[in-house]
Simulated assay, not measured.
Amino acid sequence: MGPMAASSAGVQQFRPLFGRILSVGVWAVSAVVLVVVIVGSGWPAAVGALPWLLLLSGAVWASFWNPRVAVDVGGVHLVNVTRTIDVPWPALQAVDTKWALTLQTAYGTYTAWAAPAPGGVATARMTMREAKALPAASVDLARGIRPGDHPDSPSGAAALAVRRQWAELREAGHLDAPQLEHTRVPVRWHVLSLSIGGVLIALCVLTLLV
Rank of each mutant, 00 (worst) to 15 (best):
Q179L: 04
H174I: 01
L54Y: 01
V47I: 15
G42R: 06
A158L: 04
D96N: 14
V121M: 12
S30L: 08
G58L: 15
P135Q: 05
A158N: 02
G10S: 10
S193A: 09
R143A: 14
V162C: 10
A59I: 03
D152C: 09
A45D: 06
A159T: 09
T183K: 04
I21S: 07
P147C: 12
R125M: 13
P16R: 00
H77D: 14
G40N: 13
A157E: 02
A122Y: 00
R164E: 15
G25M: 05
A157N: 03
V76H: 09
R20A: 13
L203I: 06
G108A: 11
R143H: 09
T183H: 05
M128K: 13
T207G: 07
T207I: 14
T123K: 04
Q12S: 12
A46C: 03
R68C: 15
L55D: 03
F18G: 06
L101W: 06
L92F: 05
N80G: 09
L203C: 12
V71A: 01
A49T: 07
L194N: 13
V73M: 08
G19C: 11
A122C: 04
P88H: 01
L160H: 11
P178Y: 13
A172Y: 12
A202D: 03
H174W: 14
A159H: 11
A9L: 08
S7W: 02
V121I: 13
V210M: 05
S57K: 04
G10W: 11
L78P: 02
T207V: 15
M1N: 02
T105H: 02
E130P: 02
L203W: 13
S195A: 15
V210N: 01
V60Q: 02
L101K: 02
